[in-house]
C-alpha cells in the first residue's frame, strides 16, 4: 500500500519505528492514506497514535523508517513547505488563551505566510460556529468552543491535509456532532483527513478507512466493512427447509469458509463474506434452495475488541 512519494497518498508511513530510550512506542508502522479520504487511526490510550502524528509532522524524529507528508519526509528539502499545507490539532488545541479567536488565527496566518484577510479569518470562524464570540478571549471559552477554534486554526490556508487528534475530546454530544459534521465536510473540499481517536463512534461516523493500532503496532487496516468482516461476531444466517438442514451444514462446512452451526432452525456461518452468493451457489448445486439469508455485521467495537484482544482502554481481558 505504501508508495514512496505518491501524490495519491498524501500521508505515508513506511516501516516507522520510534523508541524513547528502551521503550518502543512505534514498531515498524506502515500504512498510507489515499487522497481525499477521512482515515481513522484507532487504538487504545498509549497505543502510539499521537507519537505517529508527531513523527509525521516532524516534531519527533523517527528512529528508523520514514513518514511522508505530501511525499516529503523530515530532512527532505520540501518538507517544511509540505508541512505548511497541513492543518493540525494534536491533543488540546494550542491557543493563546488571553487572545481572541481572531488574533489566534491572525498569528497562524502570519506564521504560515498565507495571505488571508480579516474577512477570510472571520469567515473561517463563522463556519465553525463562533460568529458571536469573535473578540472574546479564548481563555473564557468552554472546551468545545476552544476545540472549534482549534479546527478553524487547522483550516487556515486551505490545507491539503488535516490531522486531528481526539477532536471531540471533552465535548458534549451536541458539540461532538457539530465537529463530526465539520470533519465530514472536509473531503468535499479536497482535504485528506487523518483522525486519531480511541472513540469508535467517531470513526464509524466520520471515516472511510481505519487503521487499528495496539502497542505501537498496526494490527489491522481497511474499510470499516472490511474490518467488521474480520470479526467472528458477524456472519450469515441461512434458512432452508428442515429436511435439508443437515445437508446444508455439510455443504457449507465443506467450503471451509468458517465455523458452521445450527441455531434455532437456521444454519449459521460465523463469518461475514463480501460476496454471499458463494453460499447460495454452493447450496443450489446440492439442490438446496434458500428460504432466507441474513447477513449480520459485527459493529466496529466488537471487531476492534476481537482483533486487539483488549477493551477500549487497552486492558487485556
Amino acid at each position: 500500500m505504501v508508495t514512496a512519494g505518491s501524490s495519491a497518498h498524501p500521508i505515508e508511513f513506511e516501516q516507522v519505528t520510534k523508541t524513547f530510550g528502551k521503550r518502543t512506542v512505534l514498531s515498524d508502522l506502515s500504512f498510507s492514506v489515499p487522497e481525499g479520504t477521512v482515515v481513522g487511526m484507532l487504538g487504545p490510550n498509549g497505543s502510539g497514535k499521537s507519537t505517529a502524528m508527531r513523527v509525521l509532522l516532524g516534531l519527533y524524529s523517527a528512529t528508523s523508517g520514514r513518514a511522508r507528508v505530501l511525499g516529503q519526509a523530515k530532512g527532505d528539502r520540501g518538507f517544511a513547505e509540505a508541512v505548511r499545507r497541513v492543518g493540525t490539532i494534536i491533543e488540546a488545541p494550542p491557543l493563546y488563551k488571553r487572545l481572541s479567536p481572531i488574533d489566534n488565527l491572525r498569528i497562524r496566518v502570519a506564521a504560515t505566510g498565507f495571505s488571508a484577510g480579516d474577512a477570510e479569518v472571520r469567515g473561517l470562524l463563522n463556519r465553525v460556529g463562533l460568529a458571536g464570540r469573535l473578540d472574546d478571549p479564548v481563555g473564557d471559552f468552554s472546551l468545545g468552543m476552544r476545540q472549534r477554534v482549534g479546527i478553524a486554526l487547522a483550516l487556515v490556508g486551505d490545507p491539503k491535509i488535516v490531522v486531528l487528534d481526539e477532536p471531540t475530546n471533552g465535548l458534549d454530544p451536541a458539540g461532538s456532532f457539530e465537529i463530526r459534521k465539520l470533519i465530514q465536510e472536509l473531503p468535499g473540499r479536497g482535504i485528506t483527513t487523518l483522525v486519531c481517536t480511541h472513540r469508535l463512534a467517531e470513526i464509524e461516523s466520520t471515516c472511510d478507512y481505519a487503521v487499528l493500532m495496539q502497542r505501537g503496532r498496526l494490527v489491522a487496516e481497511g474499510t470499516l466493512d472490511e474490518i467488521r468482516a474480520r470479526s467472528t461476531v458477524g456472519g450469515h444466517r441461512i434458512q432452508v427447509a428442515p429436511e435439508a438442514l443437515e445437508r446444508a451444514v455439510a455443504t457449507l462446512t465443506a467450503l471451509g469458509l468458517g465455523q458452521v452451526s445450527v441455531d434455532d432452525g437456521d444454519v449459521v456461518l460465523a463469518r461475514t463474506l463480501d460476496d454471499p452468493s458463494v453460499l447460495t451457489r454452493a447450496l443450489a448445486q446440492q439442490g438446496i434452495y434458500l428460504r432466507g439469508l441474513q447477513t449480520q455485521h459485527a459493529n466496529l467495537e466488537e471487531a476492534f475488541l476481537e482483533i486487539t484482544g483488549t477493551d477500549q482502554d487497552g486492558t487485556q481481558p
Binding site: R54, L57, G58, L59, K74, F79, A80, V83, R84, V86, G87, T88, I90, P94, R108, A111, T112, G113, L153
Partner: peptide
C-alpha cells in the same frame, strides 16, 4: 509549539 513548527518546520 506544535502550531509554530507546523507553520514553519
Amino acid at each position: 509549539l506544535q502550531r509554530t513548527l507546523t507553520a514553519q518546520a
